[in-house]
Amino acid sequence: MKSLIALVAGAITLASSFSAMSADEINIYSYRQPFLIDPVVKKFSDDTGIKINVVFAKKGLAERLQREGKYTKADIVLTTDISRLMELQDKGLVQAVDSKVINDNVPAHLRDEQGQWFALTTRVRNIYTSKERLGNIAISYEDLADAKYQGKICTRSGKHPYTVALISSMIAHHGYEGAKTWLNGFKNNLARKPQGNDRGQIKAIKQGQCDIALGNSYYFGKMVSDVKQKPAADAVHIVFPNQNNRGAHINVSGMALTKYSHNKASAIKLMEYLTGALAQKIYAEVNMEYPVNVAVKPSPLVASWGEFKADTLAMSAIALHRKAALRLLDEVKFDL
C-alpha cells in the first residue's frame, strides 16, 4: 500500500511539473483547423515572443472547458460559427473583454454588447448558379423553394452549422411555419440527398448534376486558387442572394476569452492582435474571408465579386433560433 501511495504521489508531482506553464504562454481551444490559424498565430509569436499552444477539435471543446472548470488552462476559444460563440456565453464559460482596440476594430453589430464574444471574419452563404444553364441571375434564398427549380439544387447536410444558421435566419424572417413551408419546398427541389461539403456542390454543378448550389464564399475563393478545382469554380457564377430586399445571410468566425483564463493580459493582447490590420489581412488573403476590420480590404479576388448588401439581422437572433431550426430539419426530414 505504501508503494502505491508513493507511486501516486510521484505521478502527481510528475504530472504537475508537466502542467506548469510559464506565464508567457497562451492556450487556445480551437474549433477551426490549425492550418487556418497557424499563419496568424505564428506571426504573433514571432512579434511578441509569447508562445501559443493549441488544441483543435470540431466537437466537444465547450464540454471539455465546462468540465475543467476553474482549473482549465485554456485562455481563448476560437469558433467558426455564431452559435458556438453563443453556446459558450450561455454556459457561462467566457468573460467580458473591454478593450478599446478591439472595440475600434470590430463594428458593434459583430460583437457582443458586453464583449463576451467578438467576430473575426464574416462569410456569406452564397448561391452558385451554373454559367451554362442558368447564367448570372438574381436569386433569393426564398427562390430555392420555387417549384421551377425542381430537381436542380444541391446542398450539403442540413445539420451542418452553416445550413442551420441559414435556416435560423429564415425562421427569424418568416416565422416557424413560414420557414417550414420554405424548407419543404427546398427539399422537394433537391437534385440529390444532402451530402458532401460546399466544394462538392460546386463540382456537382460543373458535372451537370444540378444548376444551383449553396456554399460559403471563401470555399469558392479557395477553389479558384486551386489548379485542380478551378475548372469547377469557373463553371459557376457566385451570386449574392436577396440583394433586392434584406441582403445576403452572413455568419461569423469569432473568439472569446475563457472565464478562468490564467493569462488574461497576454490573451487580450492576442485578441487585439487578431482584430488588427496584420492578422485581418492574413485572414483576408489566405482564407478568402471578409475581414471584420473595416480598415482592411478583402483580397483582390474576393473584392472582384463586387460589393454586396448583407442581412442586418443581429447575430444573436441567428443563434436564438438554432434549436428551432434543428427541429424543423428533423420534421421535414431534410437529410433523409
Binding site: 505521478a11 502527481i12 504530472a15 504537475s16 502542467s19 475543467e68 482549473y71 482549465t72 488552462k73
Partner: peptide
C-alpha cells in the same frame, strides 16, 4: 497551490 488538471488535461 493545487497541481491543476493532472489527469484530465494530460496524456493520461
Amino acid at each position: 497551490q493545487g497541481p491543476g488538471l493532472i489527469l484530465s488535461g494530460t496524456l493520461f
